[in-house]
């Protein structure tokens, strides 16, 4: 049976391809705490965050504006606190038109895989819709759901679950679309 050999070949080919594709979930992403872009853990290189004191930097957006909103169990409705964060995000995005954003929706681990993928999508869509309602051009926003695949906190208690039920606005520079 040559399946194993083919698998090795495939992996070798993909290994080469991966040179163009920096480790998406490697050292930078998913690290301790929620600082920087780590909480997003989805497809954005964490270098080039800039000076957090510079109000046009990604670091400023992540730390001062606030890059994420949290949700209640099973819900995708924005809380008053979430709306306040997103209002600031919208203002920032409109004064910094050189950035595009991918909104990552996440769920906690209490739920089946497919359902949680959809729940994450609903959360990301709720954020996207709110930002658009505040005037951010739709073309600068995309959404992605990670379902329960990328928890930020790893304990199996509500303290962790509450932080994992999130939508994170992950910026990328120079992609104004």
């Amino acid at each position: 049976m040559s399946l194993a050999a083919k698998s090795l070949l495939l992996i070798a080919v993909l290994g080469l391809a991966a040179c163009n594709n920096p480790d998406r979930y490697g050292a930078g992403a998913g690290g301790a705490g929620g600082a920087g872009g780590a909480g997003g853990a989805g497809g954005i290189d964490t270098t080039g965050l800039g000076d957090p004191n510079n109000p046009t930097s990604i670091a400023y957006f992540n730390q001062t504006v606030g890059d994420r909103v949290l949700f209640a169990v099973d819900q995708s409705t924005l809380s008053p606190e979430g709306r306040a964060v997103l209002t600031r995000q919208a203002q920032w995005l409109m004064t910094n038109p050189g950035y595009a954003a991918i909104i990552e929706g996440h769920a906690d681990e209490q739920g089946t895989r497919e359902y949680n993928l959809n729940l994450g999508a609903k959360r990301a869509a709720a954020v996207q819709n709110f930002l658009i309602s505040q005037g951010v051009p739709a073309g600068r926003l995309r959404t992605i759901s990670y379902g329960k695949e990328r928890p930020l906190e790893v304990c199996s208690e509500e303290a962790c679950y509450a932080k994992n039920r999130r939508a994170v606005t992950v910026l990328s520079a120079g992609a104004g679309v």
């Binding site: 698998s7 992996i11 998406r24 979930y25 490697g26 990670y146």
Partner: peptide, 28 residues
């Protein structure tokens, strides 16, 4: 680790023997 799980497709006999991997773990 749980917050950065790597996943790849694999096949095996029903009893767990003869594992072969179908993808690498670059993507979920």
């Amino acid at each position: 680790p749980k917050n950065a799980r790597l996943k790849r497709l694999a096949v095996m006999d029903y009893d767990g023997a003869n594992v072969a991997y179908l993808t690498d773990s670059n993507a979920i």
